[in-house]
Nucleic acid binder design. Structure first.
Lengths: 251, 251
DNA sequence: GCTGCCCCTTGATCTGGATCAATAACACCG
DNA sequence: CGGTGTTATTGATCCAGATCAAGGGGCAGC
């Protein structure tokens, strides 16, 4: 039905048609910005004008690197990205995974340099927005300003929930539930999901060992909560998973 | 020299004089907003008009509670606050400590309800800003908008650094260094700090047990890195502490 | 000055998840 | 196809920090 669910089944045309700008934007992270506070045609055109479509970035390619000067934020159009901070001992710390409709780079506003790397996990396309341009535009478009505030606040909430000390099973359950919900928001089926990231990347995100993630998934499978086929996961029993995830997701 | 350092030595007059609005604002979280993009006198007056001075909140008093509808953000004027999320098992999860010049409540923008409690740790005063009013004003005052973005992004960075998996000694060192630096930013002496929070609150913030925090402080003392007198801490050897804190603080 | 209540420290044990180690299941490619 | 590198699973052991337990110390109220 939507562009995104279409993409899931048609890997040969992985991005939305750029021709129809308005329809394109309805699937994007800033869709709410225009419709919210009354539809300002001119402002909406400004938003479309300042966007640059970039990609594809192949799996493993860097979208930006730590210490690069902050210029732009990236809305994922298709594909998946991770943001990673690598500490002095070389441990990878995954800060987040971003799927279509989500925005990468907001944590660079304050330091004015990206504090982490952004790496594509599969061929990935973005809308790139110059931050100075989009914040200038936000001045004329209260809905856009509001949307930026909301995006930042949302990510803040997500990050602090992840920061809590939770048992491994709760973390893994929360990861699955959260990802499934985010895909659902973008119009993907809510029960089946494809993990673009490795077990070890999930572990680096959840602050667990890859072995622990694997064990938890196996346990969930043995309990009949999920079905696993490599990186394809089907959620069979959302209720008990939600129960596990509850504390992590703050409900 | 500044109002804040004055307060440290004069506990009887714990807040800045409200009479001199401009001087007051020069110590506040939004000081950069006005001076940044050219000084707009009218806009600055708007900012002063929309602020409400609230407090004191006594130690233990709630500033807002989880699930309260989000209306305002609070800039700490004097005192200390913690934000806390309490999970279903009753474990306290401290999300942050806020000292004068810092802003509480930004994580409520997206959910539109406060996702945590805010509790004063000592008698505490705030500037309260209606969020709808301040974001409306931000539209006319690019510097203010920028400041809000920066505050959100800064907190995002802080939270995700805390979320990393770091050893207990690294966490505690980072806590001390970070707090000392934040006090220093506000004009307090950089080497001596008074902890407004208990060991157990520090532990709930760092995701450690209170006993572990205590042991780490003792270890640092035995190593000659700090001097401890109850809740007063003096940093004797910043270099090794910084070294420990490095990975946590992302340097 | 005494009493009760926290908060803090210190010591002794326990445990969840990390780490180490060994296969197993792939995917890619010549 | 089989070979090779990568990713995932499963089992065995270990350890940092949690938990349990027992004082010690400050301070408010009486």
């Amino acid at each position: 039905m939507t562009l995104h669910s279409h993409r899931l089944t048609d890997r040969d045309s992985p991005i939305a048609d750029d021709g129809d700008e308005v329809r394109f934007c309805s699937t994007c992270a800033f869709s709410g910005a225009s419709t919210q506070a009354g539809y300002d045609k001119a402002a909406l055109r400004d938003l479309h004008v300042l966007v640059e479509h970039v990609g594809p970035y192949q799996a493993g390619a860097h979208v930006f690197r730590r210490h690069d000067p902050f210029r732009a934020i990236y809305a994922v159009r298709g594909g998946t990205v991770k943001t990673v901070a690598i500490d002095t001992e070389g441990n990878e710390q995954v800060l987040g995974f971003y799927i279509p409709g989500e925005v990468v780079g907001l944590n660079a506003i304050y330091p004015e340099h990206y504090p982490c790397d952004a790496v594509a996990l599969e061929p990935t396309y973005f809308c790139r927005f110059s931050f100075s341009a989009i914040s200038a535009l936000a001045t004329k478009m209260p809905g856009l300003q509001q949307q930026l505030f909301r995006l930042l606040s949302k990510e803040l909430g997500m990050t602090s929930r992840l920061a809590g000390d939770h048992a491994a099973d709760e973390r893994v359950a929360a990861f699955l539930i959260d990802l499934a919900e985010r895909y659902a928001t973008q119009g993907f089926p809510a029960r089946r999901l494809h993990l673009a990231m490795s077990r070890s990347e999930i572990a680096d995100y959840l602050r667990l060992a890859a072995e622990t993630v694997s064990r938890m998934l196996t346990r969930f499978r043995d309990l009949g909560l999920i079905a696993i086929d490599g990186r394809d996961v089907e959620i069979l029993a959302p209720a008990p998973l939600n129960e596990l995830a509850r504390n992590v997701l703050g409900r």
